[in-house]
Design a protein around this nucleic acid. Structure first.
Lengths: 238, 238
DNA sequence: GCCGTGCGACGACTTAAGTCGTCGGAAGGC
DNA sequence: GCCTTCCGACGACTTAAGTCGTCGCACGGC
């Protein structure tokens, strides 16, 4: 793997984007790079937060864990995103656990440097506000889904998002590979792997999607969208 | 009802607290006061946001609605709190619907004045960041509860919070009145009124609480706390 | 090559969650 | 006073969600 320039990673972070090259380089000098293997824990919920983590390569997932082993993923952050920056802003501990979803590298920027920058530059502070606002919106919709929608609707939404993000239009439909295991999909949409499996098959049976190994082909996008709209016990089986 | 001074309400808002009296008065001159009756809608999810609402008296609930009529409350804001300020920061529409939980009065401050102030005063911007961070934490724990805990645990948490907030220690235990209907409790903890009723009774049967009309007496606080800790299917019936 | 392991598929089962209908008490309007 | 309406209580029922055990494939190590 080529050696990555920390400055590039910082530039991709919305907070830091407005800063001039020189400032980014100064910041980068304070950063420590850390390599982290898939499934390794970066920090755990409740740990005290002494600095900002920026994903440089790979992906970090932020999640809540139950003693039963069940997990709920809050977000997955890729290159150019920060992880749990909210703990820096309110001085509290990490609100959730961060685990590498793939082999990754993260930059660590000590609290002091970051907060100084925020105070100094109102552009940075505003970008931070926008980031927090975006996370807020996402969490709000997650609450809505978990509370008001069924597993099948959440899975449909997940598939739709995937299709939009990395789907390829072919004459059979929109195709994309399912990178994650059913377990991981479950953790993302708030259920267990068995239900992901069962609901995927239901979609196949109803002709909405087709599966070839771990590749998904959306045959009927309109019907998939329709599935998302449903609410608990509202739609009657036809 | 006595006429309330808008300046007092503004001063209680964390964003505005650091401002000198004169600035608050200047702000107040831009405010419009609106009286709103219980169950009336202040704004609906998706409406475009042109200003900031500050609760002056009463209480506003922010919630998501399903077509089935089921609701999920995201927060309840009382005097000195702002409602859905995130929509101002990212310029998007309201992420949820705001309905008066009681007869209330709200202040409306046009977008322009508010954003100017944020840009001007970094103290204000920082207070906004802290507010967003706090909301983020709360939403995060709500997601955790909805995804990883059962209704009985969520209800236990609700009762504990209530007991701490407005409970009175008596020799029988900690007593407090249940102001809201089962319907409203359900909307807050993510279930329907029937389940609230059923789970309350279970707590009574197990001797954890006692109910006299709509007054709750927590007999065994330790056991109530123990209920909160549980996760899905982890605790086995004794 | 073989073996272990992790994962998906699937069917049978259990249980929490949600639905429905009925009753009765309390509060408010008239 | 009466009537209506709202809400809680409760029991019976339905269904989604979750659990469990088994099988079999694919992949990686050796």
């Amino acid at each position: 793997m080529a050696v990555l320039d920390p400055v590039d990673a910082l530039r991709r972070v919305p907070f830091f984007a407005p800063l001039p090259e020189a400032d980014l380089r100064a910041l980068a000098r304070h950063c420590v790079v850390r390599r982290i293997a898939r499934e390794e824990i970066l920090f755990a919920e409740g740990d005290s937060c002494e600095g900002l983590y920026v994903v440089q390569s790979g992906a970090m997932k932020l999640l809540k864990m139950a003693e039963t082993g069940r997990e709920q993923i809050l977000t997955t952050e890729r290159a150019g995103s920060t992880v749990a920056e909210l703990a820096l802003f309110d001085g509290g501990s990490f609100p959730a656990t961060a685990i590498a979803a793939e082999d990754s590298t993260v930059l660590y920027l000590p609290k002091r440097e970051f907060l100084q920058l925020c105070r100094h530059d109102s552009e940075v502070a505003f970008a931070a506000i926008r980031t927090l606002a975006a996370r807020n919106r996402y969490l709000t919709s997650l609450v809505e889904e978990l509370s008001l929608k069924e597993v099948s609707h959440r899975l449909a939404r997940f598939l739709r998002d995937r299709a939009l993000a990395d789907g390829l239009r072919t004459r059979r439909g929109v195709e994309f590979p399912l990178e994650e295991t059913n377990q991981e999909i479950g953790a993302e949409i708030g259920t267990v792997r068995d239900l992901v499996s069962r609901n995927l098959r239901r979609f196949v049976d109803r002709g909405i999607i087709k599966m070839e190994r771990r590749k998904v082909i959306v045959l009927d996008m309109a019907e998939l969208e329709a599935q998302i709209a449903g609410t608990k016990r509202a739609t009657v089986e036809k």
